[in-house]
Design a protein around this nucleic acid. Structure first.
Length: 419
DNA sequence: CCTCCACAGGAAGCGCAGGAGT
DNA sequence: ACTCCTGCGCTTCCTGTGGAGG
């Protein structure tokens, strides 16, 4: 017996992609020669790092640029190429790559560097402080016969950037007998300004700025990947230029462009067609934008979710715009029924401003004369989507009953009005 | 023209949590 | 294991706002 819930309908699918992984995030199994439109940046990088080929430590480098424009990929490529080329001339270059988003405390960073520089590095169990790890690090560097390079990707995420100063002055302060080359990668253009002047002067000896990709450059990158990711004749002519144009509008982000192309293909595949068309790109754009906001909502703190739930509740009561007062009254009810502490109205206005900043709600100051100044608030997201994401949080489960009761009330009201 | 409403939002300070130092 | 430091979330207190209504 079949109830229609079988996998049969999926059999005919899979006609579009050849190897989807070439469009996936983090896919970088290319060679340095295959990287497109980063010739200037790669050239600058190689000029600075080339000193290592004569056995000298290169200057520290700071790399800037928006997200998705190839900073990390190029950095990894040029340093691994340097390791390989130096090896041919019996020069030892060793690179430790640290993503400061994943490891941001000083001790954590040192631990990671030590394990990269010397995988078998050991630390006495009773010693777990920064100093202990630092001593191990100095020991590794002193015994290492070559040029150490440490890459701090997303360096602005370091909880204490002073650690950069320690590395930069390690020889000057007699901790080791050799210098270290430090590469800091960031998309925060003001990061260097936040550093103290000593750290700044040592670290930003050389600077490489990555410029955003243009729409034409993005087209080239997409074409390069599409050739290996899609089957022949599966993309209509307009698809790649449109993906590139959309991504170019958003700071020339290649990651966005690739996502757009991949999701367009997935949507087309789901629809059971064999050619990706312009309409699929537009649907993919909407889908990705909605996904981004949904992710923001999912990661909001609980109190902010409660405030947002109040906005959803109030604006679904027929009024497209509601006032701060209404939101706050509903919020008080919600916080009571979920058992959370009730924040002050002052704090709630801050949370509303934050939701406005995220683009989840729209707020407008309304001067109502004698009736005071307030904010008019409307939801900038579909009600059902927002509610579904909010109710995914188990802490907000009690609100499910309120939403259900409301829905029932609306149905009975509708039934009443149709009589 | 002045008053008043109902907040918005800045400033200062408190308490807590997590990381660093000892 | 303890203390210190720092950042963050939050509160309280306060001033500013601009148009309706007297």
């Amino acid at each position: 017996m079949s109830n229609g819930r079988t996998y049969d309908k999926y059999v005919s699918r899979g006609n579009i992609f050849l190897e989807i992984r070439h469009l996936m995030k983090g896919y970088d199994s290319m060679t340095i020669d295959e990287i497109l439109h980063r010739d200037i940046e790669i050239g600058n990088y190689m000029d600075i790092l080339s000193r290592a080929m004569n056995g000298n430590t290169p200057d520290n480098i700071f790399v800037y640029g928006q997200t998705g424009i190839g900073k990390s990929m190029v950095t990894k490529m040029v340093t691994s190429q340097l390791e390989a080329d130096a090896h041919k001339y019996n020069i030892n270059v060793k690179t430790a790559y640290i993503n400061c988003e994943a490891v941001h405390t000083n001790t954590g960073v040192l631990k990671r560097i030590n394990s990269r520089m010397l995988p078998k590095s050991i630390l006495h169990k009773t010693m777990n402080s920064f100093d202990a790890h630092f001593l191990v690090f100095c020991d590794i560097i002193n015994k290492f016969d070559g040029i150490p390079i440490i890459i701090f990707d997303e360096v602005d995420k370091l909880s204490n950037p002073d650690i950069l100063n320690i590395f930069a002055r390690i020889k000057e302060n007699d901790f080791t007998d050799k210098n270290i080359c430090i590469i800091g990668v960031t998309n925060d253009l003001k990061f260097v300004e936040k550093l103290d002047s000593r750290t700044r002067s040592v670290l930003s000896k050389s600077t490489i700025v990555f410029s955003p990709y243009t729409a034409i450059q993005l087209s080239d990158i997409l074409n390069q990947r599409a050739k290996i990711a899609f089957r022949n004749n599966c993309l209509s002519e307009a698809v790649i230029p449109l993906c590139s144009a959309f991504a170019a509008q958003e700071h020339g982000d290649a990651r966005k462009a690739l996502d757009l192309l991949r999701v367009s293909g997935e949507i087309a595949e789901r629809e059971g067609v064999i050619v990706v068309e312009e309409i699929h790109v537009r649907k993919a754009k909407e889908h990705l934008e909605l996904d981004e906001v949904k992710e923001v909502i999912r990661t909001l703190p609980l109190q902010t979710k409660l405030v947002l739930a109040s906005c959803v509740y109030c604006t679904s009561e027929g009024a497209s715009k509601v006032l701060t007062r209404d939101i706050y009254n509903t919020y008080k009810r919600f916080s009571y029924s979920t058992g959370f502490e009730t924040l002050t109205q002052r704090r709630v206005t801050d949370l509303l401003s934050m939701l406005d900043m995220f683009g989840i709600i729209i707020t407008e100051i309304a001067h109502k004369g004698r009736y005071g100044r307030t904010k008019e608030i409307s939801l900038n997201m579909p009600h059902d989507v927002t509610l579904a994401v909010l109710l995914d949080d188990s802490a907000l489960t009690p609100l499910k009953d309120i939403a259900l009761q409301k829905k029932q009330a609306e149905c009975s009201l509708q039934a009443f009005s149709t009589i």
